[in-house]
Design a protein around this nucleic acid. Structure first.
Lengths: 158, 158
DNA sequence: TTTGCGACGCAAGGTGCATGCAAATTCGGA
DNA sequence: TCCGAATTTGCATGCACCTTGCGTCGCAAA
């Protein structure tokens, strides 16, 4: 597959923690020169091992007070219907994540909203009325114990 | 609360998309000078509206082929037990997200693993044997329709 | 109107980045 | 074991970028 050695892994781990690390800081962290870090980083970006860099914003500070998981059952399992639902999900910014899962429901969505009215709007005015959707059940997040997107790289040597 | 004006929102939106934007690029995007972008960005970081920057790594490219949602029921609801579970979750790198929810289960975890054996290990050798845990039910992700951490800022003027 | 304060753009000095280059290292075949 | 080719590395350099000081502008209160 894509060549990723121990240096790359250290760099990836460091960049997962701080995406604005200087090549020099990276160099100090992994034990290479800055120029090498620059080259390797460009390669990793080129190969899409690093798919992007993002600022992490505080949902609390910005007034997003409600997070919800929404289990969705489709009206039919036709490919056409699935595609319509997919497009819907892509379009709605409040939906951060969407997965199809084994188990009871067809899909699970994670949504971020300003308040409970926002959730109500999403469920009752966006999801429920959509032709592809049959049934919706939402659970509100009471407490966030952990929330990261870091991969457990310690176990990874490709 | 924290003062965030239209310029700030534009900057935040831009930095959500690309966390390595230059102050000058930011300036072009929002219609300010680079120096002002620098100052405002520092302020937003200071105030923790921007909580950090992270490289986004491709789980596929790095061989993490299994994502699972794990519903956990605690043995008892004592504060002591909850704290033990909290610590466990924090320690296990494979668990990316953990929430307590309204509804059936006490907690939902999102875990990233190399393969099904990894999931099995996590469930049977880490979660199940832990004294705080009574019951575990896991669902495997079949398809990822959407996966982002962007906040829907269009609705946000604090 | 005047005064004070905050936000602005500009300019300059310092810092970081990317590429050329030569030395060092690795690897396979004889 | 030895040698040569290919890859990887560190260093140097020219260029872009970042940050801070400074003077200006606009607005709000007196």
């Amino acid at each position: 597959m894509i060549p990723v050695d121990a240096f790359d892994l250290k760099m990836l781990a460091a960049l997962q923690n701080d995406g604005r690390l200087t090549n020099q800081q990276l160099a100090d962290a992994v034990g290479l020169s800055a120029s090498q870090c620059s080259r390797r980083r460009m390669r990793l970006e080129e190969e899409k091992v690093i798919s992007g860099y993002h600022a992490d914003l505080s949902s609390d500070a910005l007034g997003f007070n409600v997070i919800a998981f929404i289990q969705v059952t489709l009206a039919t399992h036709s490919p056409d219907n699935a595609k319509k639902f997919r497009t819907l999900v892509q379009r709605v910014d409040e939906v951060q994540e969407a997965y199809s899962l084994t188990g009871d429901a067809d899909y699970v969505l994670k949504a971020v909203l300003r308040d409970l009215k926002g959730l109500s709007d999403l469920v009752n005015n966006v999801l429920m009325p959509h032709q592809s959707v049959a049934h919706v059940r939402s659970s509100i997040v009471l407490d966030r114990l952990k929330e990261t997107s870091r991969l457990p790289l310690k176990s990874a040597l490709a």
